[in-house]
Structures are given as structure tokens and as C-alpha cells.
Simulated scan of single mutants.
Amino acid sequence: MQTAFVTGATGLLGNNLVRLLLERGVAVRALARSRTKAESQFGQIPGLEIIEGDMQDVAGFALALAGCDVVFHTAAYFRESYGGGKHWAMLKRINVDATAGLIAAAHAGGVRRFIHTSSIAVVNGPRGALIDESMTRDPRDADDYYRSKMQSDAVVQAFLRDHPEMFAAFVMPGWMHGPGDLGPTAAGQFTLDYLKRVLPGTPPGTFAFVDARDVAFALVAAAEKGRRGEHYLAAGHHIAMPDLVKIYAEVTGTPAPKRQIPVAVLWPIAVLQEVVARITRRPALLSLATVRTMRAEAERTRFDPAKSRDELGVTFRPITETIRDEVAWFRARRMV
């Protein structure tokens, strides 16, 4: 692997992947919608080439795929789909159709290795069960974002069936945190809100918490050692929200909210937030889609790391380390 192409390069996962590849001596072509944002994220790093482009127009950057040994696809339409309202058209355009266009353009440009960022959204199991890669989710039990990720995987799998000379593997992250969250993502915004002490209380739910740097490692390992067509979980640690905010308090010294917010209270808040979002045209801080997902996925966030550990060598750093580094990065950037 001498040259890699990374989509979503300025995002939380993408920028950590870019840095890991550069550390390993791999030249990187980094796709970014904004050169200014990319330069803010990376500065001037030897071996990095910024490719301005948008996943809504794969043809516009397709020529830059030629000569690459592998494409890492980390870009996705995610945060906006939980900001209130309906987003299926854009979810399909970016997560499904653009993925199909990307792998086809990569193949046409001579690339034969494609690493796709899937999601824990594509698997499911009973509450309390240990979920592995074989436990695929029923599409009827999926919100629009989850459905888009399932269809995104499907278009890559279809391409593999039609092109036996092409290699692709899938890495499935959980709720990613870590340094480099310039966006910020919803995860990073949660951390910022915690530090600013604007959280009204501790919401319910359980999560699969993972460091974006560990997911980046899994992506590179999948390119080097993964098996064709296989899925690999990189979901991290199962944790309940009350336990997570205790870790935030220990690491940051900022007291955790004392009030517990039951799900019954979240529904009317989400309704009000969506009304405000429609009026102001700003994303809802808490949407109905978020509450539905939080409720549906509670105690369905225990994921079996055995396959990724045994085949790719993936391990997960402690949550305390991730939060400490995430907070330090935000403070260094004067974002809090």
C-alpha cells in the first residue's frame, strides 16, 4: 500500500485514518468538500494531497482515484438525519447511490481494493445479547439512517459479485469519540455540552463507545489482512449513559448532571425541538429519530470483538483515555 484515497477526510474518523496512514509512510489523497477546512484540520503535512470534491458528484473527482492502491470510504450522511425532519432522499443519494458510484469509479480507475465504513446499524440482536457480524438486522427494524447503511453495504456486495477481481471489506464502528472532531460530530457535541454544563440531565440508554483511532486501525488492518467480502466489528465498549457521565466527571473534573431524564420526558422535548427546528431551520438538539433510536437500541450495544481481534489484531483503548484526549483537543482548539 503506497497511495491511498480517503473520503470524508476531515471528519472524525477520516482525519484519524489519514494521520495513521501518513505515519505508516502511505501517501494520501484526501477528499474534502472545503480546502480551507482541510488545511485547518491538517495544516501542511508531507505526503498529503487535498482533493476538493463532494460525494454528490463522484465524477468530479474520479480522475484522482487512478494510481491509488486502496480506497477508504469513510464519508457518510449521518448527523443531519438525526436533526429532525425527513432525510431519506439525501441519505440514499450520499450513503447508497454515491457509494455505488465510488466503487465503480475506483474500479474504472484501476483500483482493486476498497474498504467500506459500515456500521453497527446493520446488525442487531435481543436485548442483553452479545451481537456478532452474522446477526444481520431485519430491514423492517431499521430507521432511515440504518436502512441507508444496510443498502450501502448491499451495493458494495453486489459489485463484488459482479467483479471477482475486486476486493472489498467492511468495518463496523460504534459511537465514535476522540481527538480531531472538527465538525463536531454529535458525539463531540455531547462532550462540548458536558464541558459547558448545558446538559439538562443524564439521558437513558446504552452505547457502544469506541475511539476513532481504533476504528482507523481496523480500517487499515482490513486493507492489509481482511478477507474479501467480510464484515469486522469495531464497536468498542458497551456502556450505560449514567456510567459514561461518571467517567466524564472523573476525567474532566466537571460535575456530572445530577438529574436522570426518563424516556417519557424526552418525547415531548423532541416534539418541541422539531417544531423549533422547522421554524429556525436549524437542526433539532434532540429529535424524535434520536429518541426512537435511543429507546430501540438500549441494551443492544454489546458487540463481540472476537473476529476483529483474531483476524485484524484490533483492540480498544480505555474510555478514560479517549475522553481525556478528546477534551484536550477541544481545549487546544479553544472550542470550549
Rank of each mutant, 00 (worst) to 15 (best):
P184G: 08
Y146G: 04
P173W: 03
D143G: 12
A169G: 13
L199G: 04
D138Y: 09
H163T: 12
Y145V: 09
V155A: 09
H163G: 05
R147G: 02
L182M: 14
F190R: 04
K196A: 14
V171R: 00
Y146Q: 13
M166D: 02
L160P: 01
V171E: 01
L195N: 06
R161S: 13
M172E: 05
F167A: 12
G183N: 13
M150C: 08
P164C: 10
Q151W: 13
F167H: 12
G174W: 01
S148G: 08
P173T: 00
Q157Y: 12
F159H: 15
A142K: 07
H177R: 01
D153L: 05
T185K: 02
T191A: 05
A154V: 10
L199Y: 08
M166E: 10
R197G: 06
R197K: 14
P179Y: 01
L199Q: 07
M172C: 15
Q157F: 12
G174V: 00
A186M: 11
W175M: 05
A154K: 11
F167G: 05
F190C: 04
D143K: 07
R197Y: 06
Q189T: 12
R147C: 03
A158D: 15
S148V: 11
L192A: 07
S152C: 11
D141Y: 14
V155P: 02
S148E: 11
M176I: 03
H177S: 00
F167V: 13
D144G: 10
R140K: 11
D141L: 14
D181K: 00
K196W: 07
D138W: 13
G174C: 06
R140A: 15
Q189D: 11
A158V: 08
G180H: 01
D153Y: 03
M176D: 02
M150H: 03
V155R: 04
M176A: 01
R147F: 14
F159K: 07
Q157L: 15
F167S: 06
Y194G: 03
P139Y: 13
M176H: 01
R147N: 06
Y146T: 08
A142N: 07
F167Q: 08
A187L: 03
S148H: 09
F190P: 01
F170M: 13
Y194F: 15
V171W: 00
D181A: 06
V156M: 09
S152Q: 02
F167M: 11
V198K: 09
R147V: 04
H177N: 00
T191G: 02
V171A: 02
G183P: 00
A169C: 12
F190I: 10
M172R: 10
R147E: 10
R197I: 06
L192Q: 12
D138A: 13
T191I: 10
L192R: 11
R140Q: 15
G180I: 02
P179V: 02
Y194V: 07
G174S: 10
D193E: 08
F170S: 05
D193T: 08
D138S: 14
V198D: 06
V155N: 02
Q189P: 02
D138I: 09
F170E: 04
F159S: 04
D144S: 15
D143C: 10
P139Q: 11
V155D: 04
L192V: 09
A186H: 09
G180V: 03
R140S: 14
